[in-house]
Design a protein around this nucleic acid. Sequence first.
DNA 1: AATAATTTTTAGATTTATCTAAAAATTATT
DNA 2: AATAATTTTTAGATAAATCTAAAAATTATT
Lengths: 218, 218
Amino acid sequence: MITLTEENYIKSIYHLGKQGVNNVSTNAIAKDIKTKASSVTDMVKKLSEKGYADYKKYQGATLTEKGKRVAVSIIRKHRLWEVFLVEKLNFSWDEIHEVAEQLEHIKSEKLIKQLDAFLEYPTHDPHGDPIPDETGKIKSIDKILLSQAQIGDACICVGVQDSSSEFLKYLDKNNIALGTELIVVHKEPFDNSVTILVSAKEFIISNMIANNLFVKVG
Amino acid sequence: MITLTEENYIKSIYHLGKQGVNNVSTNAIAKDIKTKASSVTDMVKKLSEKGYADYKKYQGATLTEKGKRVAVSIIRKHRLWEVFLVEKLNFSWDEIHEVAEQLEHIKSEKLIKQLDAFLEYPTHDPHGDPIPDETGKIKSIDKILLSQAQIGDACICVGVQDSSSEFLKYLDKNNIALGTELIVVHKEPFDNSVTILVSAKEFIISNMIANNLFVKVG
DNA sequence: AATAATTTTTAGATTTATCTAAAAATTATT
DNA sequence: AATAATTTTTAGATAAATCTAAAAATTATT
């Protein structure tokens, strides 16, 4: 049996691993899940013994195939529950993370299978992130950060990098949602801010915002 | 913060307390949650320190008002989730208990408020048990065990005492569901079996079954 | 390449919930 | 009422996950 704590470590290793580094350092995991490096060392040894991770002293950890399957399954559950919360229970996209963090650990194959059907097999969660299918396949669309778009590009918002409540509330306040169409009018070299045209109105967003909003060009 | 384990002990004390006894013995709790009496002693002390229960050595435990509020809130969550599983995810009534046991511990006021609304404020769960309202009020209907009904009584099935998968499957197999109408045709004094008339067909059920099926007479 | 700084691991302690086995208290039986 | 049987509690151990502080290894800097 896999414990809730083990699941959270596996999730962390998976997410940190996606961000480029293959061997995730104990310190990175510690920072991510707000614990001490010494605790991580212990847990990573245990995950290795149980076959979820590969780990050699001083060389960080990577997930095995078995570990990856667990991670993807948790992500699938998390994202399906997020869709449920928004579509069925009228949560806004900045309120769902905490609750989904709890729901993702519920153990029942049938529950997830039926939830998926009930939601009519959604492909993306409310933040634009892809939902892995039953076999663990993730189909990602070709999205770029708004900061990378060129002047003149017509874009559609398809996702967020940062899904913190503060950022999402900022987007809400400024009427930017998934599916919103925009055109890049100007990119200011001085501060890397981006001027965009949204519903016939010009609007300047900081580089920080542009760096956290995914768009599809064309 | 209340832990999952504490919640399960509180639930157990509540249920055992409902069954007549006011001061629930440590042994009874131990049997109910499949642990040892010595573990129960420890936990009951802790619940007492935290204000969820009253406990004096050798005299068993009772829930305080605070403890009862917790218990009722868990029961509310459990039963709402059961309705969700049956009504929305096509679970059958013998499959829902385990999953609801997990879901009942999810912490989010909004989640339950919205779930309740989404399900259109159900008053009873799929086993016929009443769902406490937001304030903790439980309105119970006047039901009796089928074994207590008199010959000639026209009854409607309104609930089950035992909600084990085996019993529920037996009912399914014999086309007895909540809402099913039946008439008591005969009560056999020898073995206390009951002959009932269901959809124009006579059917004999054992005393054990009659002792676990709640009906409303008239 | 030697030293300094940082990261990672080890060793030992702590907390929560559990257990076993023995002691104490309560309840039942003669 | 004394003894037997049962229940309940205590004492001490164990397992999981964490922590602090010190030691070891790695990486960076001069």
